[in-house]
């Protein structure tokens, strides 16, 4: 850090920090806090009842049927997180590495990888829902056409495959993001270091493991944390492709859907329970914030300043 010789340094920093902070505080933190307060009341529909301390939390965590629903949804979130870690960040790193070598056509490939990211989740959801249609869908039609009939499954209709279909669609949609972040990180590695490595070793593997991977650590921190937060806040894609109930049979139920259903009700049952929903939201938030902070601190510790 350079020493700063600056008059009114405090003023300058304040001027930089306060406007963005004010936006976040007014339009995110304040509404959320008022919503969190709802978690401690007993709600009759939209009517606020008595202050009931931690009853809602206890119900969501330990009382049936809520407890098993919570466990089910939470388990799916964990599957989604680890699957996307491999499919999205792992593949993203590989693609970034391939793009970084500037092979012929790299520019074109880079645009292709990033193209789905600019589509909105709504479009991606409907697109893959149509593609995965068991009879008319493009996926099953092409599977049958190329002589792999076992690939023609009702992907979204079976509880064994539905969540994987969603994970695939999400990876297809977002893989360009980690790719681009990793690529930017790789392009920032100074050429002198790479030249020095070339003198030392021929092994590409050693180069990746000892040089590239440690030096893109800041990029890795960013994509890992964002993926963690995204995986546990997963809502839009399952909502569009699997519906509010996480069909079939709750096999794609994730915390986002479960929370929404509890708080605002669904088509089949109009029951709304703001108390339980808010309690769930508080728990989800505390969990995400705690784990994300730990991940951030741990990953930041291994970052190296070039």
């Amino acid at each position: 850090m350079p020493r700063l010789r600056l008059t009114g340094r405090g003023m300058w920093i304040t001027a930089l920090i306060v406007p963005p902070l004010a936006f976040v505080a007014l339009f995110i933190i304040y509404p959320i806090i008022s919503a969190f307060a709802y978690a401690f009341y007993d709600w009759q529909g939209l009517l606020r009842g008595d202050f009931v301390w931690f009853d809602n939390f206890h119900k969501v965590l330990f009382e049936e049927p809520y407890a098993s629903w919570t466990r089910n949804a939470f388990g799916h979130n964990i599957i989604v997180f680890f699957a996307l870690m491999v499919l999205q960040n792992g593949v993203g790193f590989l693609l970034a590495y391939a793009l970084w070598r500037e092979l012929p056509g790299a520019r074109f490939h880079r645009i292709a990888v990033f193209l789905p990211v600019v589509l909105s989740t709504i479009i991606v959801g409907y697109l893959w829902k149509l593609f995965l249609h068991p009879l008319f869908g493009v996926v099953n039609q092409s599977a049958r056409a190329i002589g792999l009939p076992w690939l023609a499954q009702p992907w979204l209709g079976q509880d064994s495959t539905a969540i994987w279909a969603l994970i695939f669609a999400n990876a297809w949609h977002m893989v360009g993001f980690p790719t681009l972040v990793f690529l930017a990180g790789m392009q920032r590695i100074p050429t002198e270091i790479l030249d020095a490595v070339r003198m030392e070793t021929q092994s590409e593997w050693v180069k990746i493991r000892k040089i590239v991977w440690p030096l893109v650590a800041p990029s890795a921190t960013v994509v890992f944390v964002l993926l963690f937060v995204g995986a546990f806040n997963w809502f839009e894609l399952p909502y569009i492709m699997a519906g509010l109930d996480g069909s079939p049979y709750g096999s794609t139920d994730v915390l986002g859907l479960y929370f929404y259903r509890t708080a605002f009700g669904n088509v089949s049952s109009g029951q709304q329970n703001f108390g339980l929903g808010s309690a769930l939201a508080v728990l989800i938030f505390v969990f995400i914030a705690a784990v994300a902070s730990v991940i951030t601190v741990r990953l930041r510790a291994r970052e190296i300043q070039i």
């Binding site: 976040v24 933190i29 304040y30 959320i32 806040n233 929370f259 939201a281």
Partner: peptide
């Protein structure tokens, strides 16, 4: 504080918002 804003479940904030 900003990162916390990232993790908040905004769906719940719709009504207060």
């Amino acid at each position: 504080f900003f990162i916390a804003g990232l993790t908040l479940p905004l769906k719940l904030a719709i009504i207060p918002l």
